[in-house]
């Protein structure tokens, strides 16, 4: 019996645990940038909420890297 749910991360289909949080996904996808922006279903997520924000089937998560050049 599958215990995974399907979500989309950076435009690609992924299977993750139904208990996964955004913080777990950041770890799993090795997003090490401390200035990372996380978009969850089209909404900006505050960094302090990563560990308490779960995902549901068909959710879309985007990891956005900052642009600091000029």
């Amino acid at each position: 019996m599958s215990v995974c749910i399907r979500i989309t991360v950076n435009g690609l289909p992924e299977e993750v645990s139904p208990s996964a949080t955004l913080a777990d996904l950041i770890d799993r996808f090795r997003e090490m940038d401390r200035d990372l922006i996380v978009e969850h279903n089209g909404r900006f997520v505050f960094p302090q909420d990563y560990a308490s924000t779960g995902v549901a089937p068909n959710d879309r998560v985007e990891f956005i890297h900052p642009n600091f050049g000029g």
Binding site: H65, P66, N67, F68, G69, G70
Partner: peptide
């Protein structure tokens, strides 16, 4: 903001808030 680093932008942000002046950010990579 036409700077090239995060730290200077933090300076501009503090200035913007202290003086209540709009801060137009742009960054590229």
């Amino acid at each position: 903001d036409a700077t090239d680093n995060r730290e200077t932008r933090q300076v501009l942000n503090r200035l913007s808030l202290r003086r209540q002046v709009p801060f137009v950010y742009g960054g590229i990579s």
